[in-house]
Amino acid sequence: MKRHIKFIASNNVKAFYILAILLTSISCNKPQDETDKSHSEINIRYAERFVVETNGNEIAATVKLEAGQEQQYIFHKKDSIQEKSSITASNIEVPLEKVVCLASPHICLINSLQETDKIIGLEDYKSVYNPAILDKVRSGQIHEVGNYDQLNLELLVNIHPDAIFESVSSMSGRNAGQLENLALRTIAIPAHFETHPLGRLEWIKFFALFFDKRQYADSLFTAIESSYLHTSQLTRSAAHKPTVVAGYFSKGVWVAPGGKSYFAQLLKDAGADYIWKDDSTSGNIKLNYEQLLSKGLEADYFINIQMIFKEREQVLNEMPEIRSFKSIRNNNFYMNNAMVNAFGKNNYWEQGFVEPQVILKDLGRIFHPELFPDHTPVYFK
């Protein structure tokens, strides 16, 4: 059942705010401090999976999970005097001092906030690309707590993080219940369900709440958004829109981004014509060879995006028939594996999560090289 945020103020408090507004309108238009604003919703422009509201010094966030479920959080600064909230939710004192991340994009979001020193645990060293994080794992500053199905509960109890960030649906019911019984707070993050690249990045505003860095996150997001939109303005105005096949092979089928997915949005913003743009799926779609052939044979470009590292020839050998595709014959075949470490961890799925403007420019350079002659792709080759 959905729970809706509702702030309840006494008549005296309401009267105070009305009086304050009247006095402000009569006097000069002096900017109000952020913490003095009455109940308002913080502007989230692209993300659809969370909302943030404020009521004076109180900040409330609602995360939209799966099957209509929601989780709410109330944030307040440590040692501050708080009135009893009217919201039934998890109360969180900020800033947090110790956190565990069970997904590498969460590490990048925290790293972007310059709070990496607060990370004390992760899944295992093979799940991370960031060299600085790997150094901390080797030195024992960051612990390997295990994967979702085999968490080291004893270790988690010993290090006792303030929060464990995990992806939605990744935590088994058994582990979730055990963590709750051990008084270990888990924060489910459905950021990977967002359908816009900037919507994924905008989760930095949610993470910022845990470290009391709202203004820093807003400034960083605005700068990246500006860069992204500038690139998109250039590419989308291009006269020619090359057609594109995108996806990867898995167990004999072609897995392609749905027409309403974040990657389909990237292709559109990069000035390309995605061959499955009319599909209504926000996740992935699975296609057999005949379906791939019917639309992809004459496509101008072939973009391979995959989680598991593979070389070009490995991909081509998985389905030799695609060698006859126009894109392959013309050597317009690109892969998102330009940054892969010795363990096979692909930085596209890690740092790329917080650099949509770089990924967009990479794609813009591929499809419209005349617009970005000085840009060398970072994530694609």
Rank of each mutant, 00 (worst) to 15 (best):
I164L: 14
A183V: 02
V100P: 14
A15L: 13
Y274N: 02
H160W: 10
F302Y: 04
I42G: 09
G259K: 05
D273E: 12
D273F: 06
S90V: 08
E202N: 04
N341S: 00
N331S: 14
S40Q: 15
H76T: 15
E97Y: 04
Y46T: 04
Y262V: 00
L360I: 14
I133V: 14
S86Q: 15
E321S: 03
F221D: 01
L122K: 04
R329I: 12
R214T: 15
D362G: 09
L134W: 08
E321G: 03
K251S: 10
K295W: 09
Y228W: 11
E66W: 05
G247S: 07
Q291D: 15
L266F: 07
P161Q: 11
A60Y: 15
N181F: 04
N43V: 08
S38C: 14
S170Y: 10
D278P: 03
A272K: 03
L292I: 00
G56I: 09
K286E: 03
F193E: 10
L102E: 12
S139G: 03
E202Y: 04
I187S: 12
I164E: 06
L179R: 13
I303G: 00
E166A: 12
M1A: 06
I142Y: 08
Q306A: 09
F353G: 00
S86N: 10
S232R: 07
K64E: 11
N29D: 15
S261D: 11
S280K: 13
Y348C: 00
D117N: 13
S294W: 11
R214K: 15
L134N: 14
S90C: 14
T231G: 06
V145M: 15
G259R: 08
V253R: 12
I159W: 01
T281P: 09
P369Q: 01
Q351D: 01
G271R: 02
S172M: 10
N331G: 03
Q32G: 11
H240R: 13
E166L: 09
L287T: 04
E144Y: 14
C28S: 05
N175S: 08
S112R: 04
D124R: 10
I42F: 14
K326D: 09
K77M: 09
P190M: 02
S294D: 13
W349T: 03
F207P: 01
T35P: 01
L234R: 05
I322C: 04
A163C: 12
A60C: 11
L65R: 04
Y248K: 08
T186W: 09
A132C: 13
